[in-house]
Structures are given as structure tokens and as C-alpha cells.
Nucleic acid binder design. Structure first.
Lengths: 327, 327
DNA sequence: TTGTACGCGTTATCAG
DNA sequence: CTGATAACGCGTACAA
């Protein structure tokens, strides 16, 4: 590794002067600056991040704690957060807890050890302990996707989303509506379910059946929906995520039901996968990319001690495609 | 931030002794150890990673350079690599270049600055410069998904995969076969195409049409396949990725073609999305999770200077589902 | 305008 | 078994 001393030697300057040009601080003569910049280029010099963080107190790193990267929603979120951070000169430290409390604890520890300047965390199942340590250490935090008590949050109104889901079906004349969702420990899923129930209640109805599962993979969702259809036959099924809805479509097909003629299906998220089925999935879209960007903006404001930004307007949008129809 | 001195003071020991118990090195009396461990717990002490790396020369961090996290394949890959690294006591520094050379250069710089102990890189479009700097700095590297000249690689045999794609169709009696793929600058995609062409040539055939696009999103792939179908009418289409195949299924449906009766479609990867369509997609599966784990194993061996492990056996597997049939 | 010297938090060496 | 102390690479008062 080439270090600041090597550059100083090569450019015939002192390390202080090199530091000045590298950091653009203080006065340096044009000639000296040119010589130093040349040396930096030739030796591909990178100031050691650890030493720099130690000295300056800032690591220019932001921790990003997500439940999983292999769930497409979080992969997309991680991507946008990371790009937004990069554009602002920060480095993302992306961690995926695999929904395990031990992993979460370990990662929180790693973030503390890395002296991250801030943390963006999304939907970690078992919060509490981890968040507490971060807060205790005075690290600025922004919650994404799901709110965390006492913390700034950037999340869509999942309850309102649930209402939209139910409302759309109600408007189409459906009265017998089932709900399928996973993972059941996810707060957003629970909130959407509450929204659905509330909207239905407004029409004097209740879901004819609700099936929540722990696993959010395709096969688990399909099985869940299949079990529901084996018990009652609603005219419509709401998936609390696109994944659940896609599972429902398959369960319906497995039972010889034609979507949307025999059964309407609607999802939530509008992931790319919502367009993969035929007919394509009707769903309520949440603006993942805006969520990521807003979270970064908010965190940076917090880190810079700026006045708290007003909560972002995150619009939910009903995307009518082919899986819902009049009863 | 609580530091080693705070622990020393609280436990009535010297920082040297604290360091010993924290690192499990050297002799420490049971009583002293207990006092120190208690203090560590009470103050939630984390050794500063920067200082530690500076002193020890190892950051216990591994750089993971991917083209994008919002492409499900890479999201899954990132997840497995990260979990495998975590299990071995390493921290992943996940970077997604968004397929931009500037981002790649910046991230390589960041990795150098962080003193990563090794790097796992996948399918970055514009390699060369970045890799060169890493190699020059003596950083152990393992390539995943696509090989890199002169570097250890963990990747499936894409050419063989291409042959399997063509072979399956040939076995079903197809003779008029089209190919749709994206992104065109991806080496794996090119290799699969070469494999397809080779296998077809073995039967005295050539693809009736090949359409490669720059974008790998759903809509782009659908348009690509639609353009192909507007020109010729093959009895089967090969997608060089599942995404391309799903696009082809939709293009076919848009033209009133029934899959697989009028048109067989096959993909590559076996992402979760391969099961979302109805009928479900026939595809050649590559073992993403094994790839990630093998890459980590190899990198650690390299880092520890162990003898090079033999190249991993990464089996491709034809998964026959519903989108292919006899002509 | 440039250089010297100190301290950031750790680990490892060497005495005691 | 324990404690001083010298690096590690960098940024920055302060002196020149």
C-alpha cells in the first residue's frame, strides 16, 4: 500500500503539504500541487480510510441494515439507497440479517466498530436490542419501510395501502374476499391487513378468510392460498405482497379457476414480478426508489444536524392490470 | 464511543491487559478476565475497526463488487456471499457499480482505502482498469459468474449451458429455434449464445433469428422477443436468461400464440421468477448459492495462502416445467 | 507557503 | 501474569 509518506518523498514535499492537496484544505503553491497530484496519480495513492476515520472522527460510511438481500424488494431498496449514498460521497455498509437476531446483533456491533456516521434500517423483525445500542451510541438512524418508535421514518402508509386494496375490490362488486399474506411477523404486512379489515368493516364486511404464513417464498405462498381455497371460495383474494398474490394465482390455476373470471387477485408492492404473470397482476405500487432516496436525504440531514425535513410524501398508486375484474 | 482506555480504567487494568482478553491472546488471570469482560459488556465496548486494521494490517473485510443489486440474480448472489463471509468472521463490503465504469473505479478506490483483505467480483462489464489496480495492490481476487483473465474464477460453464438449452429443444424435435437475450455486453450471455450456436451447428442447424438487447428489464426483453416474432415464426425460443424467456412468453401471448403448443420457451438461471408464469418456465438451473459459497471458500484459501483449491464442480441442471413441448 | 510534531485507538513487544 | 510503550497512517495546530 502506498501511503502519504511515499507521495511526500516522491514529490519532494512534506506529508502536511500532501495532506493539504489531497483534502483541498489550506494554501499550496500551484507548482507543488501539480507535482503532488502527479505523484498521487502515478502511485495510485488512497488515504487509508481507517486512519482517516480515526483522525477525523467520521468514516463517511452509512450502515444499511436489511432483513435480506435475496428478497427482491430489499435488493432494489439496497440498490437505490446505495446509489443515493454514493452520489453524496458516502459509502454504504450493507448488511442483511437473514432475519436472525444474532446476525442483527453482530452487524450492529460491526457498524459501531466501523464508526458509521449513520444507519438506515428496514423492517428488521427483532428490533429493540440492536436499535437501542445504536441509539445509545448516538448514531443517527432513519427507519425505512416500517417505522420504529421514536425514530425518523420513511415508509409508505401501509394501512392506507390495505384500504386501497379492499376498496378496489369493493368497487368491483366483490363481497367475499379472502386475504393471503407473508411473512406474518412483518409489521407492514400486519398494517396492510388491518387496513383491509378496516375498509371492509366500513362496508359492513369482514374477510371470509385470512391466511398468514411465516415464509414468504413462492411455494409457501402458493400453499397458503391453496389451503384457503380449499376451505372457502371467495370471489377475490388479496395478497399482502405481490409474492402472496402470485401464489394465489397459481393456487387458483391449480384448482381450475380462471383469473379474473372466477377469482380476482390483487397484490401489493408492484415489484417487477407483478408483470410476469399472465394476465399481469393488478397491484398497489409503492415507490421503492423514492423511499430509498428520501431515507438517504433524511439521514444526511440528521447527520449534518439540519432541521428535520418534513415527512416525505410517498404516494401509493393502484395499478390496474389484468387480474381483477367485476364479480 | 467507549474505547479501550475506558474499559481499562473501569476494570482497574492496563490497556494491554484489556487488549489481551478482547483478543484472547496471552495469559490473563481468571479474576482480571472476569472484571474486564464485565466492563466490556456494561459499556458495550467495540474495538475501533479502523485502529485495529491500521495496527494489525487486516481489516477482516472483503469487497464484493457486483453490477447491480436490483437484478434478482445478483441480489441472491450478494446474499449468499455475505452470509458465507459472515459465518467465517468476515465482513462484506458490498458495492454495486450500476454497470458504470466511474462507479467501478470509485468503488475499487474505496476498497483499497478500506484495506480490504480480498475481493469477490462478478460480471462487471468494464473490467480491466479496476481489476488492474486491485492486482497491482496485491489484493487476492476471485471472479464469480464470469471468469476474468488470470484470476481464480467460480462460474458455471455457460457454454455448456447454452448447449443444454439447444439440446433440450432439439430432443423435442424443434428445428426452427430463435434466441433472445440481454444484456448483450454480458460475457455469460455471449457464451451461452455461443454454446447454443455450437450445439445447433452439430445438428446442421443455425438459429433462425438472434436478438440481443442492451437492457435486461422485463419490458425490454418482451419488446425484443416481439420484434423477433414479427420477423420469423420459430417453433421455439431460447432466452439466455429467465428474464428474456419470460419476455418471450409475454410476446407470444401478445400475438395469440399458446405456449407450449404453438411455441416452446426455455430460459436460463432458474430464478424464483421462473415459477411465476403459467405454465411455469422450463429452464437450465445454475446453483447460485453454491457459487457464492465456493467463491468465498476460494477467496479465503487465497487469502490464507493455502494451496489453490481445485475448481468447484458446479452442476447445471435442466428443470423441465411447462413451457417446452414436442413440436 | 511549507514543515514539525502530536494524538487518534489498537496491538504487539519487551520488561518486570 | 501484568503494564509501559512503540508503531500503524493520517490530519492539523503551530512554528518557521
Amino acid at each position: 500500500m502506498t501511503k502519504i509518506r511515499d507521495i511526500a518523498k516522491r514529490a519532494g514535499a512534506s506529508i502536511a503539504t500532501v495532506s493539504r492537496v489531497v483534502n483541498g484544505s489550506g494554501y499550496v503553491s500551484a507548482g507543488m500541487r501539480a507535482r503532488i497530484e502527479a505523484a498521487v496519480r502515478e502511485l495510485d495513492y488512497r488515504p487509508n480510510a481507517g486512519a482517516r476515520a480515526m483522525r477525523s472522527g467520521s468514516s463517511r460510511m452509512v450502515g444499511v441494515l436489511l432483513p435480506a438481500l435475496d428478497v427482491h424488494f430489499f435488493g432494489i431498496l439496497a440498490h437505490t439507497v446505495e446509489q443515493a449514498l454514493f452520489a453524496r460521497g458516502y459509502q454504504a455498509m450493507i448488511c442483511s440479517t437473514a432475519e436472525s437476531p444474532e446476525h442483527e446483533a453482530a452487524y450492529v456491533g460491526a457498524m459501531l466498530a466501523q464508526q458509521v456516521d449513520g444507519v438506515i434500517m428496514a423492517a428488521v423483525a427483532s428490533d429493540g436490542a440492536g436499535v437501542g445500542r445504536l441509539v445509545a451510541a448516538g448514531v443517527p438512524i432513519v427507519a425505512v419501510d416500517r417505522a420504529l418508535p421514536g425514530l425518523a421514518a420513511v415508509a409508505v402508509d401501509h394501512h392506507a395501502g390495505g384500504r386501497m386494496l379492499a376498496r378496489h375490490l369493493l368497487d368491483l362488486g366483490h363481497r367475499a374476499i379472502g386475504v393471503v399474506g407473508a411473512p406474518d411477523h412483518s409489521a407492514p404486512v400486519q398494517e396492510r391487513l388491518a387496513g383491509i379489515t378496516a375498509e371492509l368493516a366500513g362496508a359492513g364486511l369482514a374477510p371470509v378468510a385470512v391466511r398468514l404464513g411465516a415464509e414468504h417464498g413462492f411455494e409457501a405462498c402458493r400453499a397458503l392460498a391453496d389451503a384457503l381455497l380449499g376451505e372457502v371460495l371467495p370471489t377475490a383474494i388479496i395478497g399482502t405482497t405481490d409474492m402472496a398474490a402470485i401464489g394465489a394465482i397459481h393456487a387458483a390455476a391449480g384448482r381450475g379457476l380462471v383469473v379474473p373470471r372466477d377469482l380476482s387477485v390483487i397484490g401489493f408492492d408492484d415489484l417487477p414480478a407483478a408483470r410476469y404473470t399472465i394476465p399481469q397482476l393488478t397491484t398497489v405500487a409503492q415507490p421503492v426508489r423514492e423511499i430509498g432516496q428520501a431515507a438517504v436525504e433524511r439521514l444526511l440531514a440528521l447527520m449534518e444536524g439540519k432541521p428535520a425535513l418534513p415527512p416525505p410524501v410517498l404516494a401509493l398508486r393502484l395499478v390496474e392490470r389484468g387480474t381483477t375484474g367485476r364479480v
